[in-house]
Structures are given as structure tokens and as C-alpha cells.
Simulated assay, not measured.
Amino acid sequence: MFPKFHKLNSGHKIPSIGLGVYLTPVSIAKEISLDGLETGYRHIDSAQVYKNESEVCDAIAEWLKKDPSTNKREDIFYTTKIFDSDHGYELTKKAIEVSLERAKGIDYIDLILMHSPRSDYERRHGSWLALQEAVASGKVKNIGVSNYGIKHLKELLAYPDLKIKPAINQIEIHPWLTRTELAAFCQTEGIVVEAYSPLVRGQKFDDELLLSLAKKYSKTTAQILINWSLSKGYVTLPKTVTKSRLLPNLESDQFKLSPEDIKALDAKDEYFVTGWDPTVYPLDNEK
């Protein structure tokens, strides 16, 4: 019903639904990642600050070895992120090396994101230069950002030595936090919007409209929310540590919400942030 992939401005493809592993404990990160791959996920989203990069990469490597004739590395999209404390050219170069070492069993990283814009112009700029070099090395296929607002994206796009535009801006986005202007800016610039916390961390599962739509379509509340993300043209990253929820989340692309129901969900927008919002972080001249 929906495209299985989005084409990035780099020319690479990214699966429309990915498995998020934020707050997934190290003790189960490998198991749930492997379960996800066996279920049909081909996109897993990690980060250095999640402290489960090694486990996710080990799961991918194990899956690849299970059936080399059908389980191909080129079918997997693995993402990680460089945290704010490692902004700056030299620190980011070292951080990239650390992530590549953890990913040595899978040969390369499909996407590295800057986790947020929370530093300053010089360090953000230096980080982007290091990321561009990583792409040139061939060990990183795509680069992008996370939690960037319009002003941060404009700053990046104006770098005098910009060679590679961000492929992705990963942001919290769901019906209670629609970020219409930011999403439109990204799409105008050819930057794919990637929605994290599409399930609102379960905090709106008792919403009357959401429950009524779940009943109307004979779907779970999670499936309605994932489908809303897909209807907007976003890549979406539902997270679960429960094996039984993996397949239903992945199958959320097999129906379509009506335009009227999408509009009704859009109207829920109330700037409801479930975690943090670095998109409002000030630029140097605003501090």
C-alpha cells in the first residue's frame, strides 16, 4: 500500500519502516534485533549514546551468516549517531572510527547522523566535514542529522565547503507533534524526514479518536500511528522490545487511512514532546 523504500538524495534507498532501539537494554538488544530481521525488518536505528551498537551489529552479522545465499548485506540499512559531546572535526573522526570498529562484522555503516545541533557553529561545521570525509572513504554510505530545526539546517546548507547535503533529518514527529513547517522545509530541500517516537511512547494510546480509528480499521493503535507517519511520506521508527509486536508494526503499511481520518489526527497537534526538543536549540548569535 505504501512504498517499501524511500530514495535518498544520495541515490541510496532506505526502508520506510525501521526498528528503533532507543533504551533497548544491552542484554536484549541483539535478540530483539535478530528477531526483527527474522520478522522482515531491514532497517535498524541505533546510536552511540544508546550503548547497543555492538549488539545490533552482531545481530546483523549473525543474520547474514545464517543464509548467505539470501541474506544479503546490501538489503540491510543500519544507522547510528554521533552524540553532541563528540562534535568537532577531530572528536567526530574518532567517534566514527569507534562506530566503524563496532560495525566491522557488517563492513560498513549505511547512515551516520549528528544526534542533535547542541554545540556551536565551529563544532557542528567540523563534524560535518568529518562526516563528508567518512563518505569519501566508502565506509559510510550516507550522512544526515537528527533533531535539527530549520535554522540549523539553513546553517548547514550554507557551509562554504558543503559537498554532501543531509540525506535525513530524524525528528520526533506524530499527530500530537506534527512539525508541519519543519517537515515541509526538509521535503523542499530533498531531505527525507524520519519520524522517531511515532508511537508517542504509548502516552496517547487511550486517546478517544485513536481508539475509534483502531476499531474502524480493525488495527492496533500502534498500527494507526505508524500508518499516519507513512501517509505523510516519512520514514518511521517504531520501537518495541516485545517480539509479538514486531510483525504487527511492520505490517502497518498494508492499509490506508482516509484523508478525513488523517486530517482528524493532524488536528491533535499540541506540541507534545515526549523527551527532548533540540530543534529549538539557539544558534551562536541567539545565545
Rank of each mutant, 00 (worst) to 15 (best):
F185N: 05
V235M: 10
Y78N: 04
I28Y: 01
A195R: 01
E251D: 08
E90M: 09
N147M: 11
S231F: 09
D269F: 13
R102K: 15
I224F: 03
L129N: 03
Y41F: 10
D253I: 14
K165L: 10
Y281H: 11
G275F: 15
S99C: 13
P25C: 08
Q132E: 14
G138V: 07
K94N: 13
V200E: 06
E55D: 02
V26Y: 04
D284P: 01
L211V: 09
V235P: 00
C57M: 10
G105Y: 09
K81Y: 04
T24H: 06
L34P: 00
N227Y: 04
I226T: 02
T221E: 12
A29I: 14
I44M: 03
W176D: 01
G88K: 08
S10K: 13
P3V: 13
V140Y: 06
R123L: 11
F272I: 04
F272D: 03
K151H: 15
V235N: 01
K204C: 02
K204E: 07
Y108S: 06
K139E: 01
V200F: 06
A61L: 02
T274Q: 13
E62Y: 09
V56S: 02
R245V: 06
E122F: 11
K163P: 02
I109K: 09
N169A: 04
L199F: 05
P175M: 08
E62F: 07
L265K: 03
M1S: 11
T178Q: 15
T221F: 04
S244D: 15
N71T: 12
H152V: 14
N169H: 05
S69E: 14
P68S: 05
I191Y: 05
L64H: 02
E101S: 11
V49P: 00
L131S: 04
D253S: 14
P238N: 02
K154Y: 05
Q203E: 11
V200G: 00
E270R: 15
V21I: 12
D107L: 12
R245C: 02
Q132G: 07
G126A: 10
V193T: 15
S231C: 08
S229D: 15
L100Q: 05
E194Q: 15
F185K: 09
K66R: 14
S252I: 08
A167Q: 07
T80H: 12
I109M: 06
A136M: 13
W63R: 02
F255D: 07
K232N: 06
G40L: 09
T220R: 06
V235Q: 01
